[in-house]
């Protein structure tokens, strides 16, 4: 059963000047962990707000948990949990006061669904009398998740839960999501971090309001059309410039300690042998073939899209 259906949804702001979403369609199965991956300004938050009945789409329709986002908005508001991108709890209330408050506005009590949040809340318990505003970033985010889960929603919307959070807290957060998935909750999560895509079952890559691709992370990376090489040398910045000058190189982007390069069609020479690097003498060159990451795919799709667009 599909818990979330989005059909041809478009939304623009400032009287059509800013297109936030362009003809977006996708669906999410019940109990699925679905990721919306894209940079800031791609339209992620607008999409989330339409699905949580906070905004009306200009065109298209969407259903959440079997209810139409416009007609049955009240039903949706009973059944979804939502964690906005910005930390949205009462900073001047304590951890416990926040939780009790949000439980009550969802017509439930902390005790009723405590089992669901227990794993997360035990980490917060020592600070339950601390004001939410005084918590660390990771703790705030855990509290926000607890508050969004307290009424055991059927669908959970997490808008950039890991933005601005350090790597450790990010990892912990994804662990929590995996556990929640086992409880059968459908989770829609957005993130600008491409490396988090692999932690989702299926992902939609989104850029400038348009969906570039929807599939499992594996299928998306497998569809990368070119062979990829990872290259490094002692002078990475010069290496990148030299690679870009080479006419056989189709794309060259830095990825951490390596540059990822692909070649133009018809380049038959063994890249290991050929003179890729121009006249400069690079030392300690190392090269290896690698599989594309989601970020490689995103860059590829984004460039392709822009070429087609223009």
């Amino acid at each position: 059963m599909q818990d979330l259906i989005v059909n041809n949804v478009s939304k623009s702001f400032n009287k059509g000047k800013v297109k936030a979403l362009v003809d977006v369609s996708f669906s999410v199965e019940k109990g699925e962990l679905f990721g919306i991956i894209g940079p800031d300004g791609a339209g992620k938050t607008t999409l989330f707000r339409i699905l949580t009945t906070l905004l009306l789409a200009d065109e298209g329709m969407a259903t959440v948990n079997g209810s139409d986002v416009i007609i049955d908005y009240k039903a949706i508001r009973n059944n979804v949990g939502y964690m906005p991108g910005k930390f949205s709890l009462y900073q001047d209330l304590t951890v416990e006061e926040n939780l009790v408050f949000f439980a009550s506005i969802f017509n439930t009590t902390v005790e009723e669904n405590y089992k669901l949040i227990e794993d997360i809340y035990v980490q917060l318990e020592p600070f339950k009398n601390r004001r939410a505003g005084k918590l660390s970033g990771g703790m705030k985010q855990k509290l926000a998740l607890c508050c969004a889960l307290i009424h055991r929603p059927a669908v959970l919307f997490l808008d950039e839960p890991t933005t601005g959070v350090d790597a450790v807290s990010r990892k912990e957060f994804w662990e929590m999501l995996k556990r929640l998935k086992k409880e059968g909750i459908t989770i829609l999560v957005s993130t600008p971090y491409m490396d988090e895509a692999n932690l989702c079952e299926r992902i939609a890559l989104i850029q400038k309001g348009e969906i570039l691709s929807i599939d499992t992370p594996n299928n998306i990376t497998e569809q990368y059309p070119d062979k990829l090489l990872a290259v490094k040398s002692d002078n990475m910045s010069l290496l990148l410039k030299d690679l870009r000058k080479n006419e056989n190189v189709k794309s060259a982007f830095s990825f951490g300690e390596y540059h990822h390069i692909s070649f133009v069609d018809g380049f038959k020479n063994d890249p290991m042998q050929s003179d890729l690097f121009g006249a400069n003498n690079h030392t300690n060159i190392s090269m290896k073939p690698i599989a594309a990451t989601v970020e490689d795919c995103f860059i590829h799709l984004m460039s392709k899209h822009e070429v087609n667009g223009n």
Binding site: G41, P192, M194, Q207, S237, F253, I299, M302, S303
Partner: peptide, 14 residues
């Protein structure tokens, strides 16, 4: 570079 798209992020590093 927080939240910047992957291509622009790399241009930023250039």
């Amino acid at each position: 570079t927080g939240g910047v798209d992957p291509i622009t992020r790399r241009q930023f590093w250039d």
